[in-house]
Write a protein that binds this DNA or RNA. Sequence first.
DNA 1: TAATTCTTCGA
DNA 2: CGAAGAATT
Length: 461
Amino acid sequence: MRTAVVLFTSDLRVHDHPPLRSALASCERVVPLFVRDRRVAEAGFDAPNRVAFLADCLADLDAELRARGGRLIVRSGEAADAVAEVVRETGAVEVHLAAGVSGYAQARERRIRAAVGRLGGVLRVHDAVVTVVPPGAVVPSGKGADHFAVFTPYARRWAGEGTRDPLAAPRAVRVPDGVRTESLPAREDVDGVSPGLARGGETEGRRRLTAWLRGPVRAYARRHDDLAGDATSRLSPHLHFGTLSPTEIVRRAREKGGEGAEAFVRQVCWRDFHHQVLAARPDAATEDYRPRDDAWRTDGDEAEAWRRGRTGYPVVDAAMRQLRHEGWTHNRGRLLAASFLTKTLYVDWRTGARHYLALLVDGDVADNQLNWQWVAGTGTDTRPNRVLNPVRQGRRYDPDGAYVRRWVPELAGIRGPAVHEPWKLPARERAACGYPEPVVALADGLARFQSARGLDVTRRS
DNA sequence: TAATTCTTCGA
DNA sequence: CGAAGAATT
């Protein structure tokens, strides 16, 4: 009787799960294992919103496994130690794991391989679980670059790769008797969770995907940047935790077809793009991908005003308050709030990235850090001096001001797009609403950035 | 064939 | 500006 361990990481699902299916194909007994890795907490990665969402995911994964005769085994500690422990206890001969991209994931894989090898077992790492196209599967033609540094050429090649066939969920999972498990973490036990946090779990993810593809995706190309319309998929946390398979998402979206589905698939491609950058350059999580010799301002009152949603720029504050309330923000809100911090306040992108990671339920090293770098101009943006003007962005993506009124109650009484420039209101009305004055004049903020970068032209957009 | 130069284009 | 791909040597 052969036993395999399947270590679940960012792939908390039973549908389209190559490690699980592969383990079941070669072994009669399988131990589905999740390790609450103390390294994650030590790295400050245990944000309440994600811990709470994770609790939903684990509960649902356990239920899905139980429906198939199995159950989820939960352990705490360091991943490689816990895996070795389970291998020793069960006499497992194989360990299956989805390939990860971060420095943490890469190191974890090395440690597990060594630990399993010492016990005479073998580690099998599976590609195309966390991403659609594995990092390194497409590289620029010609001279030996190991990854793409520009999105568009990557997207062309990525689209040409196609996808593997999604795997069905297994019918039965037989777990060896008597394997010790800790109790599942409970969402209710997590403190500091955003009140409007979404529910996690594969069942919820699949429900959302089906509902999304049935209708709203059709309008995605047209409405994805409409802040108030909130017409995005909201599937990002499910992609982060792997409660949905990106391969299955792309496959089903392509089957659906249309310009909305196509634009949506392109966003999944962005995710793969960032994953392949980080896989090749794990240090880009903390270091400038393309150093520009920036003399960033450090954390201070202005950054704190930004975190609190009190910059005095309504659409920026709306995004920051939505982030705190839901643990999630519209992508356009993320971009313009990030641009405001890095370009207008000229504060180090790491300060912003840290705050996003502290709150975002979909907070992901690859996507978060590299999107921040993109905005900050130290990343893969081919126009590193692009500045998003918060007033123009507001008027463009929240033309009626509904998004601002929804998230900034001080301004809820102001009708129409005037809400984007509260400083133009009569002094009495301004004082009465209690909304803060701008932390910095746009021109002054821009001047900081431009002089630091040695620019002389005022950019727009 | 591989290195060099040219052209195009970018959330 | 600089990456990517094509053209050129």
